[in-house]
Every structure is written in structure tokens, then in C-alpha cells.
């Protein structure tokens, strides 16, 4: 194990995570620092073929047919210096009946001028399940530019759940674009939870196409902004098949001079499909605030408690 690996683990530990997972032989992991794979462990049923590029890493991830990866897979992407570019190209293939749950940490704790690009092509096979939880830890300078893009295909009865969480450190600029196509009986759940402040800029563009009969989709965004932070959230669900069901749910809390925009798009093109949406942008709910203040909490602590609650919502 090299020095970069040790530094990544140290940063991982400082983010409040348990580094023991990287020492266990029955827990799969992949650790990438800048453009180098600095640590990896695989388990039966999971194949990872990484290739180092000039500016990042390309990796093909395969969960073999019928393979159930019992323990959560840990991935760690990071750039520890103050400046840099990291491009991650992921090709994920969860084959029919496969199941995997991945926790990916993206660590940029010292960022002054770092760009992290993620391009993922994901196929989830028939009856397969893919859960991907991406947690970002950024530094305080705001010099991080994060651009995660994913194209996802769900086969019949497949299941895809993803969470994007950026609650530690300054966002900097983030531009998320996920697009998923859902075949018959499949289900999609995308959740983004982000706290922005200072001059942070947040753009989320999540699109789901419910093209198969009985496909299900839920797009959820939870964003809290203060200072001069800005967010633009675009959630789109289209339904073109019978019994397709979906819901778009965006909530943003705005304080100070922050600005937020939400665009929920619901496009239904079959009489037996049903998609709903809700979007709410505003300050902290006054009744919530008064309830906590009537317990003796000062206003700032009460607001923080309410926002932490809103941002703590996890996937089912």
C-alpha cells in the first residue's frame, strides 16, 4: 500500500467513516486518488477492470448474473492536493438477478481548484438491483467543480436507487445530470440532498422515462441554501406505458440572499399512467420554528435543526 492510499484512508476517516471496511477481505472496495487506483479488493461475483487515464480512471464494473454481493461495496474517489482534475468513467453492468449496494465517497477536503467529472453508463439487468449512494466531502474554499452524469437503463423488474449527498463543506459548483429509462416492472428512486452557502451554485437535472408497463419512478430533491447560494432543480418524469406510476418531489429552504428555482416536469402519454409532483421553495416553516423556539431553542439552532431534519431524509 502506498502513501496515497494511506492518505485517502486518513481523509476517509476524517470524514467520519470507518476505515476498517478497507481492511476486510470479504468487503469489496476500490480507492482512486487522482488518476491512480491506489487500492482494490474484490469479492466473488464482482468484477472491476480499472484503466488509468492521463486525467482520471476508467473502470468497468460487472456484477455477474445472479450474484448477490452481500456486503456493501465501498468506493473512494478523491483528489487530496489543492488543485487537479479527476475524470471517472464508469461502465456498470449489473447482470440479470444480480444485486449490489455501493457506497461511494468523493473526497476533496483541500480543494482550491479541483474539477471532478463523473460519466457513468449503467445497465441494470432483469430482476437485478443496483443501489448507489454517493457522499461528497468538500473543503471550505468552494473551489470544487463537480459534474456527475449518468445514463441508466433498467431492464424488466430491475431496481435502481441512488442518493447524492453533499452536506459537508462548501459545494462550490455542482452540475448533476442523471437520466434513466425504466422498462416494465422496474423501479427508480433518485434522491439528492445538498446544502449550499456563500456563492455555491447547484444545478440538478434528473430525468426518468417510465417506458414499460408498471414501471415506477420517484425523483426527490432536498436543498437548503443560505448566503448568496443558488440552485436550479429540474426534475422530469415521463410516462408512456400503462400502469406506470411516478412522483416528483422537490423541497428547497432558502435563507438570506439565496435563490432557488424548481422545475418539476410531468409528462404523461398513456391514459392508464399516473405521475404526480410537488415542489416547495421558501423559508423555514414558521410553525416548525415556533414549536422548537417554544421549547427554548434560539432561532438559529431551531432553523439548523429543521434543515438538518429535511436533509437527513434517506432512501427507503
Amino acid at each position: 500500500m502506498g502513501a496515497d492510499y494511506e492518505m485517502m484512508l486518513e481523509a476517509y476517516g476524517q470524514a467520519g467513516e470507518q476505515t476498517e471496511v478497507f481492511k476486510s477481505s470479504d468487503i469489496a472496495h476500490l480507492v482512486i486518488h487522482e488518476n491512480r487506483v491506489v487500492g482494490a479488493n474484490l469479492v466473488p461475483g464482482l468484477k472491476v477492470e480499472p484503466e488509468e487515464l492521463d486525467d482520471g480512471v476508467s473502470a468497468k464494473v460487472v456484477v455477474e448474473e445472479g450474484a448477490v454481493i452481500e456486503k456493501r461495496v465501498h468506493m473512494c474517489f478523491g483528489v487530496l492536493p489543492e488543485e487537479g482534475l479527476q475524470r471517472i468513467l464508469l461502465d456498470v453492468d449489473v447482470r440479470d438477478g444480480g444485486q449490489v449496494d455501493i457506497l461511494a465517497h468523493c473526497l476533496f477536503p483541500n480543494a482550491v481548484d479541483i474539477t471532478h467529472l463523473m460519466d457513468a453508463n449503467i445497465r441494470v439487468g432483469e430482476g437485478a438491483t443496483y443501489r448507489y449512494f454517493e457522499q461528497h466531502v468538500h473543503g471550505e474554499s468552494g473551489g470544487t467543480n463537480v459534474v456527475p452524469n449518468a445514463k441508466v437503463e433498467l431492464a424488466k423488474n430491475a431496481r435502481f436507487e441512488t442518493e447524492f449527498e453533499l452536506l459537508e463543506g462548501r459545494v462550490g459548483e455542482i452540475d448533476i445530470e442523471y437520466e434513466t429509462e425504466c422498462a416494465a416492472g422496474s423501479s427508480l428512486r433518485m434522491l439528492a440532498r445538498i446544502a449550499g452557502r456563500a456563492d455555491d451554485r447547484i444545478n440538478i437535472r434528473e430525468i426518468g422515462h417510465l417506458v414499460g408497463e408498471d414501471a415506477r419512478g420517484v425523483l426527490i430533491s432536498r436543498v437548503a441554501l443560505k448566503d448568496r447560494a443558488q440552485a436550479d432543480i429540474y426534475n422530469e418524469l415521463t410516462a408512456t406505458a400503462p400502469k406506470a406510476r411516478g412522483h416528483v418531489d422537490c423541497k428547497e429552504i432558502v435563507r438570506d440572499q439565496a435563490q432557488a428555482r424548481a422545475t418539476p416536469i410531468v409528462d404523461v402519454r398513456h391514459p392508464l399512467a399516473h405521475v404526480t409532483h410537488e415542489a416547495a421553495i421558501g423559508s423555514v416553516d414558521s410553525k416548525q420554528l415556533q414549536t422548537l423556539m417554544a421549547r427554548g431553542m434560539d432561532e438559529e439552532s431551531a432553523v439548523e435543526t429543521i434543515i438538518q431534519g429535511l436533509l437527513s431524509q434517506r432512501s427507503a
Binding site: Q288, Q290, T291, T305, G309, L310, L311, S312, Q313
Partner: peptide
């Protein structure tokens, strides 16, 4: 009573 989304 108020409803608090996410607050346990």
C-alpha cells in the same frame, strides 16, 4: 402540531 419532515 407541526409536521417536521425528516426530523426524528
Amino acid at each position: 402540531p407541526a409536521r417536521f419532515e425528516g426530523l426524528t
